[in-house]
């Protein structure tokens, strides 16, 4: 079990086993990369994946919200898989989303997948960036960010080798300056934290918080398994 929070810019943040981030002092819940309607997005091109991904993602979010009763929910971008995804939400899923937003502040940070008009008809504020206290929320981490950046976008995932087995799981990844959340969506895949896209954003001794089945495990990057040791060879 997690015994220590993640401290970022002097703020204590608690990762949840579902892959969300909880800031008790502000009663704020953060989730990244819901990718709602990814299934139907692919179905438009003939890949007929089970059409239950939005329902699965929202059910998980709903459980979290019922448990923690946040005052504020921040969705860190790529909440919808494409610009028309909101229109494709089933009546049930749209209704659930509406019910979840009722009585609380809801912030949609726009991501690269969410279209410009992507949030039409939804409750909540839409922004490209937001800040609260010492934290700044954006979809994609920036190289020159000041301390306290919380973002998503990369769907971080890490591998550990133990007892001859390799385990890959979604994870939070942070270096004290910034924290990147795992993807929350049911169909959102992952990118290894050693991929240059992620690792070049972080200082070398970064940490990950791996999402096990029932517990979260904090590990140093040095303890992780490096899957693709990309060495430039000429």
């Amino acid at each position: 079990m997690m015994t220590a929070p993640i401290t970022l810019a002097g703020v204590d943040l608690w990762p949840t086993i579902e892959g969300a981030l909880w800031w008790p002092a502000e009663a704020t819940l953060m989730v990244a990369d819901l990718h709602l309607e990814k299934g139907s997005s692919l179905a438009r091109r003939g890949t007929l994946l089970p059409p239950y991904d939005s329902a699965a993602t929202l059910a998980l979010l709903s459980r979290l919200i019922n448990r923690l009763a946040p005052r504020r929910v921040v969705c860190l971008g790529d909440s919808f898989h494409d610009a028309e995804a909101v229109d494709r939400l089933s009546a049930d899923d749209a209704g659930l989303l509406h019910a979840l937003a009722r009585g609380r502040q809801w912030e949609w940070i726009a991501g690269n997948h969410d279209g410009a008009a992507g949030f039409a008809g939804l409750d909540g504020e839409v922004a490209t960036e937001a800040s609260l206290g010492p934290l700044v929320f954006r979809h994609r981490a920036t190289v020159a960010a000041r301390t306290g950046e919380v973002s998503g976008h990369f769907h971080p995932k890490a591998r550990v080798a133990v007892a001859g087995r390799r385990i890959a799981c979604r994870c939070f990844v942070g270096d004290g300056q910034r924290l990147i959340l795992p993807a929350f969506g049911a169909y959102a895949g992952g990118l290894d934290v050693f991929d240059p896209a992620i690792s070049t954003l972080l200082s070398p001794g970064f940490n990950v918080w791996l999402l096990g089945r029932v517990r979260i495990h904090r590990l140093s990057s040095r303890r992780l398994h490096r899957p693709r040791c990309v060495t430039v060879m000429r």
């Binding site: 550990v160 087995r165 385990i167 096990g212 495990h217 590990l219």
Partner: peptide
């Protein structure tokens, strides 16, 4: 699964 991850933590 989690025991294995704990094991990794102990090694750490």
């Amino acid at each position: 699964y989690d025991e294995l991850l704990d094991e990794a933590a102990r090694e750490l």
